[in-house]
C-alpha cells in the first residue's frame, strides 16, 4: 500500500540546513499497521508530513498504491491518505462547530448527502448526534480526538497517518482512543502508519515498526520481538529499558 524508498527531507539551506530525515525506507502492506518510534528530533513526524505533502521530499520516492505521489498532491491522493494530528486542541478550528469541521471535506470533494455521512461518521467514532453542533471548547480532549478521527475517516481513505494520536490525552482516555483505532482498522480495512515515542503504544497498535534516531532508521523490528525484549541495536534496547519506568538500580533495589 505504502512504499517509502530512501526518503530524505532537508529543511533550509547553507548554514541553516537541517537534514530531518536521511534515507529512510519501509513498506506497509494493505491492512497492516506500521509504527515509527523515536525521541524528539528523530524525524519520525517529518516522515509522515513528507508522505502527505506537508514537508518536502528532498530525495527518494514515496509510492502510494504502487504509484509515485505528485507534488502538489492531487485530490485523489487526499481521498486515499488522511492524517490525525497529535494535539486535538490545535487540530480543530476553534470557531467551527463539529458539523462544519466534518462537512468541510465533503464540500471540498463535492460529496452528496452530507447530513447522513456526518451522523454516520460521528457514530463510527462512538459519539452521538448530540455532538454535531458543538464547538471544540465544549468538548473534552478525548472527544476532540474522536472528532479529528471522524474528520479523517469521512472521505473513506485507505491509509491513515497517525501522529502521536494519544500522547496529549490522559491515560484512561488514551485506552479508549487506542481501542477505537484498533476497532476501526479491522472494521474499515484501514492501513495505519503510527508515529509515537511510546513503545508500548506502538507495540499495542502495530505489527511491525521502525526505530528512528536523528533522522536515520536504527532498526526495523516487530512488536512480537519487542515484547520478548529482543533487539539488535543498543538504542532500541535503551528505549525498551526506559519504557519500563524508573528503577533504582544498584543504589537501592526496588
Amino acid at each position: 500500500m505504502l512504499d517509502i524508498q530512501n526518503l530524505s527531507v532537508v529543511f533550509g539551506a547553507g548554514r541553516l540546513r537541517v537534514d530531518a530525515v536521511k534515507g529512510v525506507s519501509f513498506q506497509v502492506e494493505p491492512g497492516a499497521s506500521f509504527g515509527l518510534v523515536g525521541e524528539s528530533g528523530s524525524g519520525k513526524s517529518t516522515v509522515l508530513r513528507a508522505i502527505c505533502g506537508l514537508a518536502p521530499i528532498s530525495a527518494g520516492r514515496v509510492l502510494v498504491g504502487g504509484e509515485e505521489v505528485r507534488s502538489p498532491r492531487d485530490k485523489a491522493f487526499y481521498r486515499t491518505v488522511q492524517m490525525v494530528f497529535q494535539d486535538p486542541y490545535a487540530s480543530l478550528h476553534p470557531r467551527h462547530t463539529v458539523d462544519r469541521t466534518l462537512s468541510e471535506p465533503l464540500a471540498i470533494h463535492g460529496e452528496k448527502n452530507a447530513e447522513a455521512r456526518i451522523l454516520e461518521a460521528l457514530r463510527e467514532v462512538g459519539l452521538g448526534p448530540s455532538f454535531r453542533f458543538r464547538y471544540p471548547h465544549q468538548l473534552s480532549g478525548g472527544q476532540r480526538q474522536r472528532i479529528a478521527i471522524a474528520r479523517a475517516l469521512i472521505l473513506r481513505p485507505k491509509v491513515l497517518l497517525l501522529d502521536e494520536p494519544t500522547s496529549a490525552l490522559d491515560a484512561s482516555v488514551q485506552a479508549e482512543v487506542l481501542n477505537l483505532l484498533d476497532d476501526l482498522r479491522v472494521r474499515l480495512g484501514l492501513t495505519y502508519v503510527l508515529v509515537s515515542h511510546d513503545l508500548a503504544v506502538v507495540a499495542h497498535l502495530c505489527e511491525r515498526l521502525l526505530v528512528m534516531r536523528q533522522g536515520e532508521a536504527v532498526e526495523e523490528t516487530t512488536a512480537v520481538a519487542l515484547r520478548s525484549g529482543a533487539a539488535a541495536d543498543a538504542y532500541t534496547r535503551a528505549l525498551i529499558q526506559a519504557s519500563q519506568g524508573f528503577t533504582r538500580g544498584a543504589v537501592a533495589p526496588a
Binding site: 498532491r73 485530490k75 497529535q86 490545535a90 480543530l92 478550528h93 471540498i108
Partner: peptide
C-alpha cells in the same frame, strides 16, 4: 502553521477556500 490549517490542506482544500 497550526494543525487545523494543515488538516484542511490535507483534505484537499484550495488556497482561496
Amino acid at each position: 502553521n497550526s494543525d487545523f490549517i494543515a488538516a484542511v490542506k490535507l483534505q484537499g482544500a484550495s488556497t482561496p477556500r
